[in-house]
Nucleic acid binder design. Structure first.
Lengths: 189, 189, 189, 189
DNA sequence: CATGAATGAGAATTCATTCAT
DNA sequence: CATGAATGAATTCTCATTCAT
């Protein structure tokens, strides 16, 4: 019970404020739990953050796994992946942002490494999709992992700009990303 | 003299460690000046960071301004912009990363706002290039500012991955980005 | 427990050294608690000081309320008020001094304002006593609030001089103040 | 030249802000002089303050000396002394306040002692006037030095209240103080 | 005479973490 | 399971003072 309240509060606060601006006090207050309780369930701020992040990546993978299992044509698949990713991002903006970028910061190196590992696995996961999706068509020289990393960055940067600056509509966001991504990835488009 | 030493030390440390992991003590030590000297030249950590960031953006704009003044054909121009951006990024990796992403963090809101303003100006700058470059050709529906924001994110995310994971070569990095970017932007390609 | 130790230490140190010469380190050391403990119980030096001051005024009011409730003739009442005030002052010398005078200093304006409010309330409280006490007798033109403020200043300044210079006896102190105050206030004396 | 500018700036700033809130930087800026120049003319902040204070007392004494030399009847003399003191106070409010009260604070003990000496001399000066003025009449038991200290406190506290709270008029201020002071001091009134 | 860059000791505050209950 | 009072290391910032020019 307490554990869940803590996790929920953490997602909310880390999402809103980022890692550093979120203090254990804030989390305890938001979760309606005593500060000591945080340390009963988690070894520290780092582990708490790691838990959230791990869950975040799992969500991303689940979403995308769903898309893949639907067995659509490649173009539609990529559109769907982008869409899910963008929507998830818009929902948890800061959290996904942290996962993807801010990670570099002031987190214990050990935990940081594990989180980076998660991110890399996610990139591998995406790059496999790219590789497979293109094995049939002809493709320009393209490094799939770098491409996957780049795509993630693009999606997040554009979404972030959309959220923060309020420029464009949700549809334009999806379309702009697709317009850039699709011709690049789908040879036969 | 001192001021320069401080700026140099700051670039180095902010680049290596990010904003939060870099303490004023660290900077003073690295710069071989007394702690008070930092506050003689800058009003605080925030202003010091802002200075670095402002300089960074200026460098980016200068680089790109150079490219534009060379009056090459569009494709070559975009290739050059990407190349300069990537190279600058590779050189100042973390710093540019911070400029572009980490900004969200625990910086005084006022300063944060000014830095966000700089980033937005840079995005406007890029989106103008996109808009102009495409005015002649036929273009799919594309929101230039979102596209510019996305491009920056893609370049940085891919470069980051390249640096951190050592996957691929410098050429593959450039080529991968170009392969994604060019067909998307240049209709007549 | 800790809170009490902190309050006691603060009264002692603020009384002896004044607001600025008393550091949070000093207080922590005097109270035998860790520095962080101060901030667990009080939001900062300002709030700690405000607490002490508020308590001080409460003590003053309580003392004087007691006097009034004893329903003595006016002259005796004023004598008692002066006596209580002087005695309290002699006991907490510097603290009361700070409350009454030093306030002007380097305290956060917001807190300063609240403390000034307390002092003004105390002056109002005294001036009401003056006004009521004289409603029956004939009284020269006299602005009660200015008179109350003046009386406080006189008591404190004389007491301070007594403490610091060791001139006169405790009885002379009381008598001198009464000799000045009584004929001024009591028309029918 | 510089020295004068520094003294003027110091009077202004110490008067407005008190000792602690006034920094050497502030003084230098206000005086349009480099910080080092302050130390060319004065050995430090303490000496600078002492100079101001000494001048302040001299002014007080001069004012009162003038009154005394005018050879008026006792009542008029005391009225004049009060008036001069009050007017001087209203003009240099904070400065006189500091001289009289705030002195206790964070000033080097050595300098503090000298300033206290000045204040005591001023009290002696006043108490002599009191003693002489009453030698002829019959006087209740009254400790002249304590009375003098009390009078100063009363004048300042009432004036301060007048300034800060804007209660009453200038005339009421003078009258209220006189109404309290005169019957107390002048037996034959 | 005057400067202003540089100093460094000292101060307030934050916050992740511990631990007795 | 849960608590919350207590901790103390780390951090940012202030400011009187020094000194080479």
């Amino acid at each position: 019970m307490s554990r869940n309240k803590i996790v929920d509060a953490s997602v909310k606060l880390f999402s809103e404020l980022g890692y550093h601006r979120t203090s254990m006090d804030d989390i305890a207050k938001e979760a309606n739990v005593a500060k000591g309780t945080l340390y009963y369930h988690f070894s520290g701020k780092g582990e708490l953050f790691e838990t959230i992040v791990t869950d975040g990546f799992q969500m991303l993978k689940d979403q995308i796994g769903q898309v893949l299992s639907e067995n659509q044509p490649p173009e539609q698949q990529i559109r769907s992946i982008v869409q899910r990713h963008v929507e998830l991002f818009l929902q948890y903006s800061e959290l996904v942002h942290i996962i993807a970028n801010e990670i570099t910061n002031g987190i214990e190196p050990e935990i940081l490494e594990r989180i980076m590992g998660l991110k890399n696995k996610y990139i591998d996961f995406l790059s496999d999709i790219l590789r497979q999706g293109h094995e049939d068509g002809e493709l320009n020289k393209l490094h799939y992992e770098l491409a996957a990393a780049g795509l993630i960055g693009m999606i997040e940067s554009a979404s972030m700009y959309f959220i923060k600056q309020g420029k464009g509509t949700r549809e334009e966001l999806h379309e702009t990303i697709n317009t850039i991504v699709l011709p690049a990835l789908l040879r036969n488009l």
